[in-house]
């Protein structure tokens, strides 16, 4: 057990609790955008994909990396755009822009 791993575990556990606290208050009305929006956040794995692809560790790693970048970017772009598309439809009064 290295110290770095321990502090990462701290962050992991605390972020989970933060997530629980924040998400519990999201009303059911917005649960679908919550899913697609948090889905986009899980595309954060793209950061690791970028590092793997760009650091020239060998052809195999680069191929795996490019695939990961493309998939994660689809996740990020698709997730945020579709969430925005949904959220702009939620209006309090009919016809409100």
């Amino acid at each position: 057990m290295t110290e770095a791993l321990l502090s990462s575990l701290y962050i992991f556990v605390l972020a989970m609790f933060l997530g629980f606290a924040v998400i519990t208050k999201v009303p059911p009305l917005l649960h679908t955008p919550l899913m697609s929006g948090s889905n986009a956040i899980s595309g954060v794995t793209i950061l690791a994909a970028l590092l793997v692809t760009g650091s020239q560790q060998g052809p195999l790693q680069t191929i795996l990396g490019v695939l990961a970048v493309a998939l994660a970017m689809t996740n990020v772009v698709g997730g945020y755009l579709v969430t925005d598309r949904m959220l702009q439809m939620f209006k309090k009064k009919p016809g409100e822009k």
Binding site: S8, I11, F12, V13, A15, M16, F17, L18, G19, F20, V22, I23, T24, H31, L34, M35, S38, N39, I41, S42, V44, T45, L47, A48
Partner: peptide, 15 residues
């Protein structure tokens, strides 16, 4: 990655 991933993990568990 750890922070964002666990936020999403928590969100999915609650839902």
């Amino acid at each position: 990655l750890i922070i964002s991933g666990s936020l999403v993990g928590a969100s999915g568990i609650i839902l």
